[in-house]
Design a binder for these strands. Sequence first.
DNA 1: GCCGTTTTCGGCCCGACTGTTTTCAGTCG
Length: 594
Amino acid sequence: MSLNVQLARLFSEIALLLELQEANPFKIRAYSRASQALEALDEDVGRRVEEGTLQEIPGIGRDLAGKIKEYLETGVLVEYLELKEAVPQILVEMTRIPGLGPRNALKLYHELGVESLKHIEAACRSGEVAKLKGFGPKSQQNIVEGIAFVQHASERIPLGLALPYAEAFIEILSAMDEVDQISPAGSLRRMKETVGDVDIVVGSASPEAVMDAFTGHQLVDRVLAKGKTKSSIRTLDDLQVDLRVVEPKVFGAALMHFTGSKEHNVRLREMARRKGLKINEYGIFDVSSIKEKADQAGEESPRAGKRLSAATEEECFKVLELPWIAPELREDSGEIEAALEGRLPDLIEDSDIRGELHVHTDASDGKMTLEELIEAALMKGWAYIGITDHSESLKIANGLDLDRMQWQIERIREADERYKDIRVLTGTEVDILRDGSLDYPDELLKELDIVIASVHTHFRLSREDQTKRICDAMANPYVNIVGHLTGRMIGERAAYELDVEKVIETAARTGTALEINAHPVRLDLNDRHSRIANSAGVPLVICTDAHSIGQLELMRYGVKVARRAWLEAGDVLNTLESEVLLKALHGKRPKKGK
DNA sequence: GCCGTTTTCGGCCCGACTGTTTTCAGTCG
């Protein structure tokens, strides 16, 4: 775990502990914001300490800068240790129960003296909880269900699972006459790699009809809340979907509001406030003149002023004197500053991708034949496709030995001759062996158009050994790309121990490209590492690693990661013409004839 | 605890829904 992430988690943990001590709410927020700022920081916080520029990070002041240094120097934070000592662990556990926050957790703790979730559940079942002031039978029931939920709570849902769900609901609702506009929102629209729930925003003059259709749908297992503007449901496989319905004329403001991120919205509202404006989900309002009059008359300020805009997001940003900011960037990780200074990136789009460099045919563990693959690539309008089956030692994936590899090269070259409208490139996904050497000899690798080197074995090496292993592989002049660098599989397997920053430095030095693996379970590199790699000058490729025709459609998930990493088309090699691409990939090879 | 085109002190983003109330606190996003 990087230092930035460690500190971010510490600060957010401190925020929760402070909340459970009923500390000053603004102090709590300061810690939360600092945590978020560190999470979003795209350079090593250690470097900031060396440069003495810690306090230039928004949200980090003198005090927290001191705490960061303390942690760097001593490896611990005294304040955190003291808080952890002072706050009973059960309180922290209780706040994980949906619907039960810090205030009520404290109340249960003090009134009932609970010591475990089991204890709370028993108190609910015996009816004790309902007798407490502020609680009733309903909240008692919700706590029982909440405990059951956290006990088998699935992690956040991978985007690749949530997006199809959102699309299913949107397809159904958008067919209704009552629905004028509809869009996904929240982390799903920002295309985060995992989402906690699915948010959908609808513009409609008949909210009741829309809510009825939504909550009554067959995908719905349980209705969690149902109102005129907001309803929440849970699907059979525990995915929560929130639907917000607003008047069509304020759709833009609502979409902006519910797309978030929270931190991005807070920044925008603060900006608006300084301009005498107020932002909420119904629009942007001029409150300055009205507030003045109210102040003169000694009245309390009215709730809303003159509405300046609300119909579209573009309009809303314009009132704030900002260009429209792509949802993928809305994380308060520099996008507002970039927008103010007119240097927002021109983000890569699906249509920029001209070809695919990493696929498996039935020669190794793919499901499709070479011809089926080429036909599918042609249908997608791609200009080239690199065939990269597994190498010899990966027996489980039917890796090709040297003889079969020679045969494979010949048939790819033959296919390239035969298909005039697409370049079919020879290649391999060669295994990086335990010692950092490669599974094929250089004499073979140098014959290939594309060499992707990947780790498929020995995940449990030490951080040093694993890092050295991959860096050694990149030193090979014929390795063009490193595939799925960290090996993580979302919700299935953590990344192996690896110094990613060091690998990125080595990639930059050796001129090796890194892959953004587009499979929604991998998305590896992730957005953060992709952004760092790009800043370091490392070339990137986006590949599906498809093992079947259908998986070629997963390219869009890789493009989403790239967009979240602020990448432009020019930062991604497989947006190039084939000749230019090969030249870029082979830049590190020794010159021929020497 | 942070921060400054109102401010180095006094503010700090905004609203819906639920479940409990009898006007509102707590939670969530």
